[in-house]
Amino acid sequence: MDRKDWMGLLARAPADILADLWDGLGLSPAYRWLRAPEVGGVMVQGRAGGTGAPFNLGEMTVTRCALTLADGAVGHAYVQGRDKRQAEQAALVDALMQGPEAGRVRGGLLEPLAAQMQARDSTRAAKAAATKVEFFTLVRGDD
């Protein structure tokens, strides 16, 4: 899991699951805000016909922040929604992943978070698969 992967995971994570895992880590590093959490919008683009020229589909809410730990590591977060606490925890995770606590954060937070989200996706995919149509051909008469 590289930085791009964990930032994406943290952006999509349900805030309550992230909060529980963060509390479970028992880390409370000192930090300073570089950019306090801020709620804003991002314009989501689609493509005409799914493959053609881009167009503006509509906005989504995003919360971002940046902070620095005492050792100088800088953590960034862009998370979906308006939860400033989630953004703060995501930025702390991002910063810690660049230092000596990386192993603990990976094993105690990122991997279980990825597993939970994977399980959620798999359950939906399994329900979708159960609604797949199996066609059968009726025997036709000879005349």
Binding site: G40, M43, D121
Partner: peptide, 23 residues
């Protein structure tokens, strides 16, 4: 409400071919 939000930017175009389909 939308008009009160600062615009952080635009996304890359979403890849609907990669959609995790429910339907």
């Amino acid at each position: 409400y939308r008009t009160t939000l600062p615009r952080f930017g635009s996304s890359l175009p979403v890849e609907t071919a990669q959609m995790r389909c429910d339907r």
